[in-house]
Design a protein around this nucleic acid. Structure first.
Lengths: 337, 337
DNA sequence: GTCTAGCACTCTGTGTTCCCGAGTGCCAAG
DNA sequence: CTTGGCACTCGGGAACACAGAGTGCTAGAC
């Protein structure tokens, strides 16, 4: 059905269209890529490709434009991820190395990715549920208030002010802190609920109301921030591009955590560390856009996802290269800290 | 020079232009606002207003459009801040009351303001330098590493991992924590540097290298996060508007903390709690945009600034009302926590 | 003096027409 | 199977006319 030359034609169409943003015609195509055949032959191939749904023409007597299906074939079989230049890799490394804490790592990553790809970059905060407890701290503020601070191995810090049901002395708070740490240090966050389940019973009855309150806030913290937080950068890169769905819709989606979460999250398949590409109508919302995403985190411990969002007409090989590289570097950084 | 009727004409021009986005002519104006004079008279007044530079016409034989100077006069003398409806006030209150921590307060505030004004909202994080130390925590991670956590009275938490120059026992860490807290609890952050200046000398010589390291990280934390952090929301509201300076430039400015900082910061005058309005070319960058901003924080203790950014052609009375109201509510929330 | 009515003038935006050129599909010959 | 030739289609730009909204000006009315 599709011989090698037809595939070469499709590849050429995608490449030309991506770089010029204009429907590409048979003549220009036969000239610029040395296909060694005449425009007429190319036209025949194009007709076949259109028949199969890989390309389409905006109107009669215009050049051809790839369809979503065409991009899909291109990404799957006709292109290979383009590695970054040595200079770019060095730049990434030094830029990320300067981060002081988790917030900073995420902020730098998202900016870096946006700049590198000239698209909108999206980074999900490392998931709490997969990380482990490094330390739990209870800080007495007044005699009825303590601050609960949860520090994870990814450098994330969650804090909440807890209003106690009764006055509790500092020494008992200190004891409670010791018990909590003994119980939770190094445990996975997802294991926390069952680990603390019988904690009230193992303590003196007088402490139970306070403990119950503190634990409920702790558990609330775990579920609330689950993996909700996503940041983006590079919105300015949208200014030029034209989206079928409208610029406004894209910007709205970016500011809506839930939508963004689904766009990013649903790309996650069996192997989260693999590069995933969703093209145009393959996306749940935002049909006019494509998303290139991948998981990051050390080795088998995939923490979260990052990627970029852009118009369907994007340079997939380059974008995929950048996303993959940034994910690797940020994984390294997180593993080291 | 400008009698009452001319001012009324200017006001009417601004109001009509803001709501229709089309140059307003003498006839329509005389009809819609009951000025009790004929279009011809209005034309004479318009000629005078144009002479003085308050309005201009895009081209001969088009209606008039306010200039920056015209908006300025409108804001200063011809309009009054429009208070929110009771329903809106209630909505603000309940929405902000649900915030769990400082991050949440800021996030909710910026979204609320964006939604309320249908513009881009900008909120600066409460300044560290004006807040006070609530607690300093030192958490031993390994024998050469501690985590330094600084909690302020505004609910802000800063944390840093400190690499110690030598092994330090936990008991000495605990002692150091006690000393630090005794020294700093309740003090203004700006006072911290001098308060800790002589701390190493008051401790045993053996502790000094570790203390010096910890203190340097602490001081670094204070200056680094000074008042840098600014968040925005509502970029989608830019989609419709047209900026003389270009949408791209606006989006870039929004993502550039430094620029945003200057836009927001330089509106701060002698009385930070007052509403400030910068119109069009009055802005340092982004000449096509206007900014309505104000300080927030409890009473005389102004913590930071918030505001909105939009096209010069915006509904100033409504926007100013929303900004003022949100600033008040968020100040309340912060004072209460 | 100030306001009003009338009038001639000047634009922009829109709709129409026309034409060029790029690109196609098809066919017959190599 | 490939190629050259040819007639056909259609979008986009240029040229043009025209209606409508708005203005400035001047002469008259209160």
């Amino acid at each position: 059905m599709l011989d090698d030359r037809k595939l070469a034609v499709l590849r050429a169409i995608v490449e030309d269209y991506v770089s010029t943003n204009e429907p590409v015609g048979s003549k220009a195509l036969a000239e610029r890529h040395n296909l060694k055949v005449s425009p007429a032959t190319v036209r025949n191939d194009m007709a076949a490709l259109e028949e199969e749904g890989y390309i389409t023409q905006p109107h009669t007597s215009a050049g051809r434009v790839p369809t979503d299906k065409g991009y899909r074939l291109f990404v799957d079989r006709l292109s290979q991820v383009k590695p970054l230049s040595a200079a770019e890799r060095r730049a990434i490394e030094t830029f990320l190395a300067g981060a002081v804490d988790l917030d900073d790592v995420v902020t730098r990553t998202v900016r870096l990715l946006a700049q590198l790809t000239r698209q909108v970059a999206v980074v999900q905060y490392p998931t709490l549920t997969r990380s482990t407890v490094r330390h739990v701290e209870l800080v007495p503020l007044t005699d009825r208030r303590v601050m609960l601070v949860l520090i994870t191995n990814t450098g994330r810090v969650e804090q909440r002010v807890v209003e106690l049901p009764e006055v509790v002395e500092d020494t008992r708070i200190a004891h409670l802190r010791a018990v909590l740490n003994a119980c939770l240090d190094g445990c996975g966050l997802s294991a926390v609920p069952e680990l603390v389940a019988d904690l009230p019973e193992r303590l003196p009855a007088e402490d139970r109301p306070a403990v119950a309150t503190i634990l409920s806030v702790l558990l609330e913290t775990l579920v609330e921030r689950h993996d909700e937080k996503i940041v983006f950068a590079g919105a300015a890169n949208l200014a030029g591009a034209d989206f079928t769905t409208g610029l406004r819709a894209v910007l709205e989606a970016l500011e809506e955590q839930v939508v963004l979460m689904r766009l990013l999250g649903e790309t996650s398949g069996d192997t989260p560390s693999a590069l995933t590409v969703r093209i145009g109508s393959e996306n749940p919302y935002l049909h006019g856009t494509s998303i290139v995403a991948t998981g990051y985190g050390s080795g088998d411990n995939q923490l979260a996802r990052l990627g970029v969002l852009g118009p369907t007409r994007m340079d997939y090989p380059v974008t995929m290269g950048a996303v993959r590289a940034v994910a690797r570097y940020v994984s390294q950084i997180l593993a080291a800290s």
